[in-house]
């Protein structure tokens, strides 16, 4: 009897599974469609950059990646030099090694400071700060994340750079004169260190916000569970909290790193706009890919051969490839640690 009743119910609801199947199909089409469009957009952008940069890629060859000299050539010369079938002004040489180095170094240095700081702040926010004042601190973090980069840059110019140039760098360089990356000339305050500090300040609120959400989402209950089993706070953090938030934290670091690599304005304002040489220590001037593209845009547009502009596009392509590569590597690493813990996500 019971099965009969079930059959009847099933019979009366036959159209429902059908329309539900149609709905699921629609959802699937919608989601895959969105994914394809996003992928296609990225690909299109890459293709466009590549096509526009193509003459520069031909002209520069490996020089782009191996040379430290950036020179758009003699704009008042009458003739042009031709290389690999592409014409440029005489003396033109487009090498980006200094900029690649500057991009990576400023960002890595920034992350070295910002990651531990963000972890600490996020941890304190979730575990140590009384519930009463937490909303205030949260609002502050969100506020800092929303400050425009040019404001950070301006603060850098007015406060940070003079402090480094007049106080910090002279002190450090004179006391640690023999130490590589630190000893040597003190410089003006503009440069690698100032850029890294600004970048660290910019990405810290972003990381704190995302790490805090990750920790809140899953780890507080686990932390309590571990402590209730008689673990020390340290054991709870290292054995349960860190593994459970590792991927989320990693993703957050990655997001911030990508942001740092591409940050333009604030870095442009404090990096000292170096060209054609590597910094001899962290207080010397640098330049990044994003910063050089902006600062060179105007002079490149006056280049009679047009190759300078296309070389800037090639720079953008390089930055794109760097961020993409880091993303892919990170994703591969995350997949390795992803086996457990995600099954109920």
């Amino acid at each position: 009897m019971a099965t009969r009743a079930v059959d009847v119910v099933a019979a009366t609801t036959i159209p429902k599974p059908k329309s539900m199947a149609a709905q699921t199909a629609l959802v699937r089409i919608w989601t895959t469609g969105t994914a394809i469009i996003c992928g296609a957009l990225v690909l299109l952008m890459l293709l466009f950059l590549f096509a526009f940069a193509w003459p520069a890629i031909k002209y520069n060859g490996w020089t782009m990646l191996t040379s430290i000299y950036w020179n758009i050539g003699d704009q008042y010369a009458t003739g042009t030099t031709v290389h690999n079938g592409v014409a440029a002004q005489p003396g033109a040489n487009f090498g980006s090694l200094v900029f690649i180095y500057g991009t990576l170094m400023t960002s890595i240095l920034a992350m070295l400071g910002a990651v531990p700081l963000s972890l600490l702040v996020a941890f304190a926010l979730v575990y140590r700060i009384p519930a009463r004042i937490r909303p205030g601190v949260n609002a502050l973090v969100e506020l800092m994340a929303g400050v425009p980069s040019v404001v950070y840059g301006l603060w850098g110019v007015v406060v940070l750079v003079p402090f480094i140039g007049q106080q910090l760098a002279p002190f450090v360089t004179s006391h640690l004169s023999g130490v590589p990356f630190v000893g040597g000339a003190a410089g003006s305050g503009n440069g690698l260190f100032a850029s890294a500090v600004i970048l660290a300040l910019m990405v810290t609120p972003i990381m704190v916000a995302t790490m805090r959400d990750v920790m809140l989402a899953q780890s507080k209950a686990l932390y309590e569970a571990s402590v209730a089993l008689g673990s020390t706070s340290w054991q709870a953090v290292t054995r349960v909290v860190v593994p459970s938030v590792r991927n989320g934290v990693f993703a957050s670091v990655l997001l911030a790193f990508g942001r740092a690599l591409g940050e333009t304005m604030a870095v442009l304002m404090v990096c000292g706009a170096a060209a054609n040489e590597f910094p001899s220590n962290i207080f010397q001037t640098v330049n990044t890919i994003a910063a050089i593209i902006v600062s060179q845009l105007e002079s490149a547009s006056t280049d009679a051969s047009g190759i300078a502009q296309r070389s800037l596009a090639e720079l953008a392509l390089i930055l794109f490839v760097i961020t993409l590569t880091i993303n892919i590597i990170a994703r591969l690493i995350m997949r390795g640690t992803d086996r457990l813990g995600k099954s109920n996500a």
């Binding site: 209950a221 309590e224 209730a228």
Partner: peptide
């Protein structure tokens, strides 16, 4: 003195 919580909170482990 052990404790069991309101919401099941197994570790993301085996």
């Amino acid at each position: 003195i052990g404790m069991v919580f309101q919401r099941p909170n197994p570790f993301p482990k085996t």
